[in-house]
Simulated scan of single mutants.
Amino acid sequence: MRIVLIPGMGCSPVARVNWYSWFANEVLKKQNVDECVLRDFPDPNGCKESIWIPFLRDEIGLDENTIVVGHSSGAACAMRLLENDEVCKLKGVLLVAAAYTDLGDEYERRSEYFSRPWNWEKMKKGAEKIHCFHGVDDHLIPVKEARYIAVKMKGPTFKYSEIKGGVSHFFEPWDEILDVIDDMLCS
Rank of each mutant, 00 (worst) to 15 (best):
E162M: 03
K144G: 05
V87H: 08
I177H: 08
R147P: 01
N84S: 07
D85N: 13
M123L: 10
G126A: 03
S111Y: 07
L90A: 07
V136Q: 05
G155M: 05
I141H: 11
D137I: 07
V136W: 05
N119W: 00
I149T: 03
S111H: 11
L103T: 12
D179M: 09
V87G: 03
K159H: 11
R116Q: 15
C88L: 09
T157C: 04
Y113E: 01
N119T: 03
W120H: 09
D105L: 04
L140M: 12
G104A: 04
Y160L: 08
D138V: 07
I149H: 09
H134F: 02
L90D: 03
L140K: 14
D179F: 08
R147D: 00
F158Q: 13
M79N: 07
A97L: 03
G92T: 10
T157K: 13
G166W: 12
W118P: 04
D175H: 12
E106D: 12
Y148A: 10
G74W: 14
K125M: 04
V167G: 06
K129L: 05
E83Y: 04
V96A: 10
V143L: 11
P173C: 07
D137C: 08
I163N: 09
L90Q: 05
V136R: 14
A76N: 12
I141L: 02
S111N: 14
R116E: 04
F133C: 02
T101K: 13
F171C: 04
E162T: 13
L140W: 13
G126V: 01
E108W: 15
H131N: 09
E145K: 15
M79R: 15
D137P: 00
V167Q: 10
H131W: 09
D105G: 02
D137N: 00
K159F: 12
V93T: 13
M123G: 09
T157F: 11
E128Q: 13
G166K: 10
A75Y: 07
V143W: 03
H139A: 12
E112Q: 10
L94E: 00
W174C: 00
C132R: 13
F170M: 06
K159Y: 14
F170A: 11
I130L: 02
V151I: 08
P142G: 10
K89I: 02
K164S: 13
D102P: 04
M184H: 15
M79Y: 06
D183G: 04
M153C: 06
A98Q: 10
V93P: 00
K91N: 11
Y107W: 10
D182F: 07
P156L: 05
L82E: 00
S111L: 03
L178T: 09
D105S: 10
I130W: 05
H169Y: 14
F170R: 14
S115H: 14
E121P: 01
L185H: 14
I181E: 05
R109G: 08
V143C: 08
V180T: 13
